[in-house]
Nucleic acid binder design. Structure first.
Lengths: 359, 359
DNA sequence: CCACTCGACTTGACCGGTACAGAAGACTCG
DNA sequence: CGAGTCTTCTGTACCGGTCAAGTCGAGTGG
């Protein structure tokens, strides 16, 4: 039982192989009557359709784009922002009939997806520029769109205005009269706690941008924040860092957090230390994840439109794809999506300067 | 600037194209010295490696397997069980150097990933047998492993022992003295509420199996449960169904839930109706998701090893892949993974038969 | 010294399609 | 009525590799 190919069908129907191909891929190239006959014969022979691999080679395009996520996928899947983004990307791609291939990072075996898997283009989500996977993708000259990472010349990017969002949230606290403000942001894997004299080297683009944004506003107001960092995982680290912040001699009256998840840990720490939010302490999150409204009190946070980000990324990538196919210039623009400060109940006026005891 | 292919390099080095191919794919087929020279020339010409699409055609295998998830991906990504499974699958595949392609279901456009994307095999997760995507995959005769769905003859499957888990949890309640037991399980999209005389047609295989399991134990004990159903989404529906259950003339003293998420809604409903868990009401979840231990009280639930499920599925699929490649018989086994009842604080002895007032 | 094995390359076919430039007949139109 | 134009189909040349079966000279054992 040899495989059924276009030729098998062509022989059977008595036409050229090309005509059979057209019957499947270019219906307008042959008469309806013949097409029907071809299709019927194909059906009869159990032919499903042109072989995707062969078609990919001949056409120069597979129907899939890749996505490269940070590190272990399990890691990424634990993050609401990342999964939401991923889901939105997949749904957006579906409209173009494209599938999404998850590129497993790291060359464990001798086969490296970023180098060895066929795809039309690739989305790169929060990967450092030093990633070897990104290096492979670049060498392959695959159409690429970076999301939430440091823009690189010659590549298209989608970012959110983290900096403005952070600036606005810091300004919000200043407007409420806060002057002793702390920052709890993301740091590298092994450390957590208060950073001496704010010599922070935040991990990742978003961390960097947010920090800059907060400082934009605070510096201007002459406020020097205490900065604490915690790794993304485990969540407990953020809790500990929060306790440390709140246990200082002059504890902050407000904390700006890298994310809603961090903020939720701050809330917990505050509760455990007998502090009332927002009476004793104001807390600001980031992302406006579902968590933000589930918490008690609901979080003041910075909303980013993740679905919009995904759609923008997909749109940009498909544009690049089309341009390349048409031989035209590929756009390498930078799109920065707006964010919005959402004020809820976790922030309030700065407490009166009077004594306060934590514990 | 014409594309660099094996031939380009071969000409440059002065060897046959095959030798260059071997330099990349079969290092043992040529001398180290020559290989080094070939690789150097390739590097110099900016050649990244054999073209994946061409290789896929020639070799008959792409380095990716597909996964088909129910409905909209956004839907699936909202579910802890599904995302955890997905992440574990991706990680397991990474070990074999395989990438994972998300098949976007539903033929929106004229291009249907399930039919048009090249892949070596496919995992099918909770898809009804009537899915057109599954039909395409079947017609393509792709190696396939079904997960959490009704086994079909001739296909390999991985399932968890939902039925036994359900049976155990029902028995647990019986052992605690409960006799007025209700079930809150998953139903089709548009309905929710109490099902008259238990004529339930649960949606999906897991729902069916769990229901059977509960009834296995209850029937044997002569207990006839009240059954309520709610669609998977929105979560609110489960809450409403729970309220309905608890508002009946003879309210149940225990509720068996389809999932931890459903159980969390029951908990909320109970709280809102002034019932104490487990004093007035026992609640059992399913899955042992992180939610189970976050809730207050922590849920008694049935643990399933999702990561193990993913690993088993990947292992089975790669076995099928290897078998097919070797021309051997492909296993079509059914693996059923064990589950485990985890007793926590949401279940307790049945309240004394005395009066009880809800509200 | 010769048949025999072995390593290192080469040869030619093949994987299953698609793109593109005809070719043959039917139709239109001045 | 002949030239131009469709429509419909065919032929040929790729796409960029891999596979299996050589070829050829060098080593090897009897």
């Amino acid at each position: 039982m040899t495989r059924v190919t276009l030729q098998t069908i062509a022989d059977r129907v008595g036409v050229s192989r090309m005509t059979v191909s057209n019957a499947f891929s270019r219906p307008d190239q042959l008469s309806d009557e013949l097409r029907a006959r071809v299709l019927a014969t194909a059906e009869e022979l159990g032919y499903v359709g042109p072989d995707p691999a062969a078609r990919a080679l001949a056409r120069g395009s597979t129907g899939a784009v890749g996505i490269l996520l940070t590190d272990s996928l399990t890691e990424a899947f634990g993050d609401w922002v990342a999964t939401t983004f991923l889901a939105s990307v997949a749904d957006s791609l579906a409209m173009s009939g494209l599938a999404l291939t998850l590129l497993t990072p790291g060359a464990n075996h001798d086969v490296v997806p970023s180098r060895d898997v066929a795809m039309d283009g690739v989305l790169v989500y929060v990967c450092g520029p030093e990633s070897t996977d990104v290096a492979w993708l670049r060498r392959r000259r695959l159409p690429m769109v970076g999301i939430d990472q440091t823009p690189v010349e010659g590549t298209a990017h989608i970012n959110v205005d983290d900096r403005a969002g952070a600036r606005d949230s810091a300004q919000h606290l200043l407007d409420l009269g806060h002057r002793r403000i702390a920052i709890l942001t993301i740091g590298f894997d092994d450390e957590h706690g208060i950073v001496a004299d704010g010599a922070v080297e935040p991990s990742g683009f978003a961390g960097d941008q947010r920090l800059r944004g907060w400082l934009d506003a605070l510096d201007k107001a002459g406020v020097t924040p205490t900065v604490a960092i915690a790794p993304f995982r485990p969540a407990e680290a953020a809790y500990q860092a929060a306790r440390q912040l709140l246990a200082t001699a002059e504890p902050p009256t407000a904390i700006l957090c890298f994310s809603d998840v961090y903020a939720s840990q701050v809330l917990r720490a505050a509760k455990d230390m007998g502090l009332q939010v927002p009476r004793d302490l104001s807390v600001v999150g980031f992302d406006d994840s579902p968590l933000a409204v589930q918490l008690e009190p609901r979080l003041t946070t910075v909303r980013q439109d993740i679905q919009g980000k995904a759609q923008a990324a997909v749109h940009l990538l498909t544009t690049v794809l089309k341009a390349r196919h048409a031989g035209a210039d590929e756009p390498t623009q930078h799109e920065v999506l707006p964010v919005e400060l959402v004020v809820r109940e976790s922030t309030g006026p700065a407490p009166k300067p009077g004594r306060r005891k934590a514990g």
